[in-house]
Write a protein that binds this DNA or RNA. Structure first.
Lengths: 335, 335
DNA sequence: TTGAAAGCGATACCAG
DNA sequence: CTGGTATCGCTTTCAA
């Protein structure tokens, strides 16, 4: 590895001067600057990030915390973050917490002292204690979906409530008369909001009772089982709004197993807009989050905070969602 | 941050001695060791990886290079690598190259000097030039699927040839009489081997001509289009073996669009065993690679090489695959 | 405008 | 068995 000393020697100056031109900001005569630049190029010199980090400089490296990269929502998010970071010379360290506090803690420990400049937290569990650790070192953080503390912090969310209204209204528009909702775990605010959106639309409809809502587990399995139950309870349903795409896919499978046609007999709409929604047949109508953009925004916001250009206050986003109309709700209006 | 000096002070010894107990290996009197351990615990001391890295020690950090984390094959692989690494205190940096040389180069540059202990390369493009860079610094590497150089190196593969034989034989067993093959890009050895496996089985069958093989692009789209073409060419097919699951899913959709029943009219078998194969209806029969194990093996092999416990020579693996029989090939034997 | 030197936090060699 | 100290590569005063 060529070091700053080599450059200094070749240019015939001191290492301090080389450091100056590397970091700009301080005056160096045009002439020596030129010499140094030449030496740098000739030697193909790149400053050692480790040494830099040691003296308290930025390491250009961030950590991205997700529950599980195998959950189909995250690959796109992570990809967006990574793309954005790489463009700016940042490195991203991936952490899978399975939403377990102890794993988060363990990551925080391993990551400590590695000169991580900031965190993107897409894991909803990060608890006060762990947050406190970060606050103390005041490491910049950007959160997705949910703020794990009371203080205002950078947060990127989508409009779950209105997105759900969009979905349910859409089902109504294509002619559904009995719409069930498969909801995700209610400890997660995201799923609460989506349920609220559903209720908002249906609560005034004559047929509606809360028995049209049924719990899923946020996985395909949960959607599958929910359908079996709801069909016993309300064989008359002709529309399903699932709290996320995975449950919607489970629902779709359950219906197909019973030879109930989708969308002719029952229309289905999911939420999230993950890639697999186009792999099913029929393809799934869904309320799509701008996943890639969320990742980009998270990354650029974080880097902005690291550079001190962005504060907590001016980094609260609620992004819009978009209904993507596909075959799972392509039915004729019956009325 | 509490440093080695704080520990030394509290324990009333020199930093050298503290360093000795941190790194084991050298003799320290039981007594002072005890004092130091206590001090370490009291202060909750963790040695600074940056400082360690600077003096040439391992940073406990590896880079994982994949073409695209959004490709459904990789999340599981990455997860396995990350799990395994985290258990050993290693950090993993994710890199998406899109199989572009210039991106690889760019990563190699950014990563340089960060004390990356090793690489796991699942991107088939890594070219000689980039490899050379790594060789020069002799950074440990583990490759997946494909060796990007002539020299023997750690490599983890699966038995594509025999896996394909398994698949085609299975289609025959469930009663298929005309089996088409949708193959992936032939620049990729993996897809060549799979095609060879297919040919091996069918070449001696009376109906077989090479026109039963048709190109896909390794994506769903390619599988979809391939089916449309092959159906024109051979309307009599009753079985499809796709070079990977994504193409198989595309094929499934194409058939369903034409109201051709799967598996009754045409059975489908894929290759890879990615998670989405259970999201379709019918669920997809596939030749599953042990993806998670491959990731685990890659990570533990790499760490072994980093520690000098494993050499290139004793890290060549060809893993077995397993046929997972699902509904897309559940047909009665016709004969 | 530039250089010398003091760290940053750890390792490892050399004495004692 | 333990301490002193040079060193890793770079940033940052402090002087000159």
């Amino acid at each position: 590895m060529v070091s700053i000393r080599d450059v200094a020697n070749l240019a015939g100056v001191s290492i301090a001067t080389v450091s100056r031109v590397m970091n700009k900001r301080e005056y160096v005569s045009k002439n020596t600057e030129k010499k140094i630049i030449r030496a740098i190029e000739e030697l193909n010199y790149v400053p050692n990030p480790l040494a830099r980090g040691l003296v308290g400089k930025k390491m250009s490296s961030i950590a991205m915390i997700v529950p599980d990269i195998m959950n189909p929502f995250y690959p796109e998010l992570v990809r967006a973050v990574e793309d954005t970071c790489h463009k700016q010379g940042y490195t991203v360290i991936l952490c899978n917490t399975d939403d377990k506090k102890y794993k988060e803690k363990s990551y925080l420990k391993v990551l400590k002292g590695r000169g991580i400049d900031g965190f993107i937290v897409a894991s909803s569990m990060l608890d006060k204690e762990n947050i406190a650790t970060l606050e103390k070192e005041n490491t910049p953080c950007v959160f997705l979906e949910r703020l794990p503390c009371d203080k205002p912090r950078s947060l990127i969310q989508v409009d779950n409530f209105n997105g759900s209204i969009l979905a349910v209204q859409h089902l109504l528009d294509v002619g559904c008369n009995r719409i069930a909702h498969i909801y995700g775990p209610q400890e997660v605010p995201t799923y609460q909001e989506r349920m609220n959106g559903y209720e908002e639309v249906v609560k005034s409809l004559p047929w509606y009772t809360s028995s049209y809502m049924i719990a899923g587990d946020s996985q395909m399995e949960g959607g599958f089982k929910a359908v079996e139950k709801i069909l016993d309870r309300h064989p008359d349903i002709d529309g399903i709004f699932a709290g996320n795409d995975l449950m919607a896919i489970g629902a779709l499978k359950a219906l197909q197993r019973r030879s109930i046609r989708v969308p002719e007999d029952v229309a289905i709409c999911g939420f999230d807009g993950i890639a697999v929604t186009i792999m099913t047949e029929p393809e799934l109508t869904t309320v799509a989050q701008p996943i890639y953009e969320m990742g980009e925004l998270a990354a650029s916001t974080l880097i902005g905070k690291i550079n001190g250009d962005i504060t907590d206050e001016d980094s609260l986003y609620v992004l819009g969602v978009e209904l993507i109309h596909r075959n799972s709700t392509m039915k004729m209006r019956k009325t």
